[in-house]
């Protein structure tokens, strides 16, 4: 039994970090080039979005810096391109690269926020349904069943429409972000709810939960302290895959014109704006945001796929 240990670089590190590095998940990650590449791309995108105000060559929302004279400039390498605008400009003379960077901010923010919202809602309802059972379980799960029969985008459209009507056209722009998060989040909670409920049904009958009940701990304490940490694995997988879905859903809503307004464009809004000029030859306005969206969704999805395989011992 020689040559046992892998090439560990024995850095002295705190416990948590060391445990992460020794974990099977990290091992599987370092053995999957696709996962590492995807993670790198996602990381670059997220960082670029976070630091967009620092990186972006122009501020697309500053009316003072935009000149209508610069409108419809093709990418820099095309005939008539301008070196100032690497990926060209749109109809208002805004730099496409900059709008993409700022658009990603909105897209990622809406995506993350709605996934977190869906996760919180789904986990709570799933825990409650699974742990208490009985009629509580029946009611929650029947609602989930009904909701599953409609496509998520339809639900999002419905909620969005209702919120829009309630908020009125003037104040809508102020609450648009919240409305988007709520509508996308509400249309995605079912998956979390069902998964968590299923895992809870398994875990709640395990003896460590009985032992916790035996010392008189309340149901909420047991649910959150004992059961929840043991059902988070599958939730994490769904959350990653759902992040891609949420970003696409937001883009779809924005593309359909019910998402964020053109003054604060997301990737979807950018694609919609560009769509109008696609057939008049100004392809760059829509193609570049489109490619960005596709790469973002693809890499996040790949990451989710890897995570699912890594956490599922049957496939390992």
């Amino acid at each position: 039994m020689s040559d046992v240990t892998s090439q560990e670089t024995n850095r002295s590190a705190p416990g948590a970090f060391r445990r992460m590095r020794d974990s099977d998940l990290w091992y599987s990650f370092t053995r999957s080039p696709l996962a590492m590449l995807s993670a790198l791309v996602v990381l670059i995108f997220v960082l670029a979005a976070l630091f967009a105000p620092l990186i972006a060559p122009h501020d697309p929302f500053d009316p003072g810096s935009i000149s209508i004279l610069d409108s419809f400039l093709p990418p820099a390498w095309e005939d008539g391109g301008d070196a100032r605008f690497l990926l060209g400009t749109d109809d208002q003379g805004r730099d496409v690269l900059s709008t993409i960077l700022f658009g990603m901010r909105i897209s990622l923010a809406v995506g993350f926020a709605s996934v977190v919202f869906a996760m919180l809602l789904g986990i709570t309802l799933g825990l409650v349904a699974g742990y208490f059972g009985g009629w509580v379980d029946s009611v929650i799960m029947r609602i989930a069943d009904v909701q599953l029969t409609f496509p998520a985008i339809l639900i999002a459209l419905l909620i969005n429409g209702v919120a829009r009507a309630m908020a009125g056209p003037q104040s809508y722009d102020k609450v648009v972000f919240v409305v988007l998060v709520l509508s996308i989040g509400l249309s995605f909670w079912v998956q979390y709810g069902r998964t968590v409920r299923g895992s809870v049904l398994v875990e709640a009958n395990k003896e460590y939960v009985l032992a916790a009940r035996l010392i008189g701990l309340g149901p909420w304490t047991i649910m959150f302290k004992h059961v929840l940490p043991n059902v988070l694995g599958p939730v994490l997988v769904i959350a990653t895959i759902n992040l891609a879905l949420a970003i696409i859903t937001e883009a779809t809503l924005s593309f359909l014109g019910v998402g964020v307004p053109p003054t604060q464009p997301s990737l979807g809004t950018l694609i919609r704006i560009g769509n109008d000029f696609l057939f008049s030859g100004e392809w760059w306005i829509t193609i570049f945001p489109g490619i960005t969206l596709a790469i973002l969704a693809l890499t996040v999805n790949l990451l989710g796929d890897w995570l699912r395989d890594a956490l599922n011992p049957k496939l390992r």
């Binding site: 395990k206 003896e207 460590y208 009985l210 032992a211 916790a212 035996l214 008189g216 004992h226 043991n230």
Partner: peptide, 21 residues
């Protein structure tokens, strides 16, 4: 509480009776 404290249980499966986390 006083009563519960006085009653405890040892389970069959030592792999399921301890919270793995």
């Amino acid at each position: 509480r006083r009563m519960r404290r006085k009653i405890q249980m040892i389970f069959q499966d030592p792999f399921a009776s301890l919270n793995p986390r």
